[in-house]
Design a protein around this nucleic acid. Structure first.
Lengths: 246, 246
DNA sequence: TGTACATCAGTGAACGCGCGTTCACTGATGTAC
DNA sequence: TGTACATCAGTGAACGCGCGTTCACTGATGTAC
């Protein structure tokens, strides 16, 4: 019922506007407190009562802003998706648009930086799904912004590939869901490489953040940097798309 | 205090052996019930009381087998690491040892298959860390078996690379933690590619399993197959190790 | 083989806790005339 | 500008629940002589 993300309904600009602004502020304060709690307790331990406690209000008051715990969680998830996407897209926009390798590197670094500075929010959206929580439709669009940003650069780089090398039909079918994003501008082999690249970036960040690089890879991002450069180097030229002799 | 994984202490073979065997069986039954619960509720909702309920015993009885909830969780985590590792290593062993690409493909497929058939156990070890749970030392060795198996094939394939192409010193430093595993048999550039490959496999499996491929990549593993073959093809030859023009 | 003792497995009650959500309510803020 | 009414924000008590862990205990199983 409560829909805090919708704009205030039309009404008296001064009076109604005040109420709406206060409401928006408290909504944000609740989400901030929830985020803070996320950082110390983890997603599934997120508690409405604890959030209310931090804000010095009755636990029942939260229900004026979010219909349920899951609603609050959904809001946090959407915010997190938007936040990483903002960071990644901003990094892309700040780069020389002609330097595709530079853009890819900038986006990858932005992704890793955001993850390192918001580890629990990253885990919320990129870790194992929260048990019992079913992601609603509203999360789909925000969730696709980052992968789309990365795919886009690859597509731009490889648009010129000969269309006769369009790859095996079963692969095309497996990637059919991406046609809406790519507009068929690119061969399926390139698309395969682009998805694999996104998986590698996601994998490097997640492995590090989730502790799987402990004692084996330094936490300074040097490996990440080199790996991304190598990835971009292979990906944005034709070499990496070589098919097995088969 | 309770250490269910240790073998039975020396004693009368018949009598002591019976008690120990019964104990081992119940320990396994507890872990099975816990795993079953994991599958429906997720890791952080794992409850000793629910496990006890499923086994028709008093909740306090669990404490004869595991000192605490965290101890049980640790046992499940270790089991899960061992189980994936067993699957991956078995797939490797079953392949023609001379066909390195085949071995890599076999291991990758085993990883994905295990993940698909044990999604919550996969999430337990490869998802976001369970809040408040600190992984003890005993998890380190089992956790490294899979990455080591994968690195090993790459190392074997690329052992002959010219040692003068040993790569930038900062990269060598970042990967110094891996020296114990590789014995310096391989250049740091190859090592970088190997880690990136592991990250890509992990990323492909995790993205799919955690729902990030919904509506974009078919769930039939066709993309995975093609991506792995392309990865192996590039990785096990020299081409993928080409450095950027600097 | 038989007996006295020690060890172990499992019970059930209890402690203290926190949780999500509902409900009837009080005041304050906004709206319509 | 003033008044009557509607809407909204926030309260505090309560419901019913499940949790991890401890404790003193009862029987059964194993051990030593």
């Amino acid at each position: 019922m409560v829909n805090p993300s919708s704009e205030e309904p039309a009404g008296s600009v001064s009076a109604g506007g005040v109420r709406a602004r206060v409401r928006a502020e408290l909504t944000a304060a609740i989400k901030d407190a929830a985020r803070r709690q996320l950082a110390t307790e983890g997603a599934s331990a997120l508690s409405l009562r604890a959030v209310a406690r931090e804000l010095d209000m009755a636990s029942s008051a939260i229900y004026r802003y979010f219909a349920s715990r899951d609603d609050l969680l959904t809001a946090l998830i959407i915010d997190a998706y938007e936040a990483v996407a903002d960071a990644v897209e901003a990094a892309d926009a700040a780069a020389d648009q002609r330097d595709l390798e530079g853009r890819l590197h900038a986006m990858a670094s932005a992704l890793r930086n955001w993850a390192m500075t918001h580890p629990h929010e990253y885990g919320l959206i990129f870790g194992s799904p929260v048990p019992g929580y079913e992601a609603p439709q509203d999360t789909i669009d925000p969730a696709s912004r980052v992968p789309i940003a990365i795919l886009s650069v690859v597509i731009e780089a490889r648009r010129g590939d000969a269309p006769d090398a369009s790859g095996p039909p079963d692969l095309a079918e497996a990637l059919a869901g991406l046609n809406g994003f790519t507009g068929g501008l690119v061969t399926t082999v390139v698309l395969r490489d682009a998805v694999a690249a996104w998986a590698q970036l996601f994998g490097l960040v997640s492995l590090e953040l989730f502790g799987h690089f402990e004692n084996s890879v330094a936490p300074d991002g040097v490996l990440f940097d080199h790996a991304v450069r190598a990835l971009a180097n292979g990906l944005l030229r034709n070499e990496a798309a070589l098919e097995p002799p088969a």
